[in-house]
Amino acid sequence: MNLSSKTIDILQNVSLEVNAGETIAIVGSSGSGKTTLLSIIAGLDIPTSGEVYLKGQALHVADEEARAAIRGQYVGFIFQQFLLIPSLTAKENIMLPAELANMDNAEVLAQELLTKVGLSERGDHFPSQLSGGEQQRVAIARAFITQPDILFADEPTGNLDNTTGAQIENLLFELHQQAGTTLVVVTHDPKLAERCQRQVVMNNGHLEEQPAPLVEVV
């Protein structure tokens, strides 16, 4: 990153391979570069040097539009701030990615997902009429509607209390199991990280694999 005359390396010698269907947690202190790593592997940003492949597609040479197309095809997101579109109802928010992918049965799928996340009665409510936990459940339903190959979650429980956070975690892993989606979670929460098959630690731009008995490293 170029900051006026100085150049700061946020990520250095980072090498990470994630297999299909895996769950992986990226942990690390604030400012360690977790979010930058996420933005690059999710195709939201490109690195100044190095290579990134998603489903065999080279993200580092794709332009913004091409990366958008790749994201639309393979990727789902869950954010700390939920980031629902305030002008759409809960159901419409969920339907959005399916509609963008021109799926015919978006509404049926959305209703099914609303039921799965326990909000079958709240489909017509706008985000401002929902609690934080409910908004995040809508966001999860939205992320799963297109059955993306890979789901990126940025601090998905960061804005929620413990109980709600736990419910969201359960929901996330439940849906992951049902759909077989690859899950990449950026988190501070050690409990959430422990539920993932792999944990990697970002430290001052360097990535270290955390050995864990349950994690199979490839």
């Binding site: 958008a68 790749i70 639309g72 997101f77 629902l84 579109i85």
Partner: peptide, 14 residues
Amino acid sequence: QSVVAIFKAMGTSK
């Protein structure tokens, strides 16, 4: 801006 960013993150073209 946030709405557009969400649209784009979900793969919407410009």
